[in-house]
Amino acid sequence: MATNFLEGPTNTTPRQTLALSQNAKSFFTSQKGWSLPYPLSLFLNTESQEKWATYENIFLATLRTGDHDAAYLCLEELTDRFGKTNEHVVALQGIYQEATAKDTNELEEVMKRYDELLKDDPALFSVRKRRAALLKSVGRPVDAIGDLVSLVDASPTDAEAWAELADLYAQQGTYEQAIFCLEEVLLVTPNAWNMHARLAEVTYMSAQKMEGGEQLKALSESMRRFCRSIELCDDYLRGYLGLKITTGRLLTALDGAKKSQLTVSDPTTGDLAPPSLASVRKLNELATAKLGEIVRRGTAGEKGWDGYSAIELKAARDALDRDTLKIQR
């Protein structure tokens, strides 16, 4: 069977999810299998972490494809094994109820249940996260932000919560807070190149609103973040695309900048001086060349280059096309 049961739900494409949920039946029958009579069964142990991870993945996949009966079976198995009060199982039950709720009233019911659970034990972080996610999905981002803020106050090492909070802030357009949250994520996972790139993106977005020296500073910080993410992960498409865009902006910004702004390297605040024009230009050329290579090989599906998502490849190609148009003119 080519289906990978152990791939986490965040990494699967819709096609993989569909395949996973279609294989649910055969997985159930394979689990039923033979077993020894009672005293002898003590000598054999079919427990493994993979088994339960598979159950959870199938549960999420079947919910996504709308196969609620199969999802219910998985949930039953998990509840039987780990008990009703298990932190993880409670969250999964919540997901099931959210997914099968037919209208907003039922979602309100789920919310009430979360509130009751949290009144009993405010340390149930999985339920607190579910509550924030539910608030976000019913279109109450401000309440979700409030929830998450209290969550990260109680548990400031939770990178997942910080990242979610950063997303919400960025959606609301409050970039400064989003940058703060992403910095917190980086403090927990210092080498996460995707988080470096994400921070760079948010910094770039915030730079759009600024002017003059402030903008120059934000742009160069964003460019350096992209550099770092490429340094951590070779051939990172998002990193190169961001590097190309930021260096393009920086070239114009540096041209128009005053002399005094170019050499500011304040030792007290520790802000770095903007990069030199020559190195920005070189980086821009390199990023363009690399992007061209990635797009060419990625679209051709060459071996070792086929992991890129189609949407990101298209965005990169569009950026390159825009560039050539400008030159033709």
Binding site: A154, S155, T157, E221
Partner: peptide, 21 residues
């Protein structure tokens, strides 16, 4: 405990954030 861990994280990974932050 988590706040304690958080500060230790800052000490270890302080290079990831700018001086002002």
């Amino acid at each position: 405990n988590r706040h304690l861990q958080h500060v230790r994280n800052i000490i270890i990974n302080h290079a990831q954030i700018s001086r002002s932050a």
